[in-house]
Computed example of a mutant assay.
Amino acid sequence: MVMIEACEGVNLTALSEALSSRPSGVSRLCDGLEAAGLLERGASTTSGREVELRLIASGQSLTDIRDFRRREVTTVLRTMPTAQLVALIERLEALPSAARSHTNTAPLKQEPSANTA
């Protein structure tokens, strides 16, 4: 959504390249965003073969919420004493390692199939 917001009217190919993802995966992602009422696809203004992507009001509302949260976190961080900020940074830097460790040891959850009851 951030990329679509930044590049209003971007097409799937350009979005796929910007996200370093396969077009089919980005198309499925956009399908979900469209189904959730956050995005709309429309005919390109420059090419009859391309589709442009735009956030609709509810999608824009989510980006507004993100921006608000970012400002609030920034305000809080600016009020923290330096020692607490250093401690926070150290813990955040340890997070990727802890996440990899957790991912490697956590059992995989299997979703119940529709056929088992």
Rank of each mutant, 00 (worst) to 15 (best):
Q60D: 09
Q60F: 12
S61M: 15
S61F: 15
S61C: 13
L62G: 03
L62S: 02
T63L: 10
T63G: 08
D64C: 11
R66A: 13
D67N: 14
D67G: 13
D67F: 10
R69W: 12
R69E: 14
R69K: 14
R70L: 12
R70H: 15
R70I: 13
R70Y: 14
R71Q: 14
R71E: 13
E72H: 06
E72F: 04
V73Y: 02
T74P: 01
T75H: 08
T75D: 06
T75L: 01
T75C: 04
T75R: 07
V76L: 07
V76Y: 10
V76K: 07
L77D: 01
L77G: 04
R78N: 15
T79D: 02
T79G: 02
P81H: 01
T82R: 12
T82A: 11
T82Q: 14
T82N: 11
A83S: 08
A83I: 06
A83N: 10
Q84T: 13
Q84G: 13
Q84F: 12
L85A: 09
V86K: 05
V86H: 09
V86S: 10
A87N: 07
A87F: 07
I89N: 15
E90W: 15
E90L: 15
E90P: 09
E90G: 15
E93N: 12
A94H: 05
L95I: 04
L95W: 02
P96M: 01
S97A: 13
S97G: 11
S97T: 12
S97C: 11
A98P: 07
A98C: 10
A99C: 09
A99H: 11
A99D: 08
R100N: 03
R100P: 00
R100I: 03
S101H: 01
S101V: 03
H102D: 10
T103P: 04
T103N: 14
T103M: 11
T105H: 04
T105V: 00
T105S: 02
A106T: 02
A106W: 00
A106D: 00
P107Y: 00
P107G: 00
L108D: 06
K109W: 03
K109M: 11
Q110T: 11
Q110N: 12
Q110I: 11
E111G: 08
P112C: 03
P112L: 02
P112V: 02
S113F: 04
S113E: 05
S113H: 06
N115H: 13
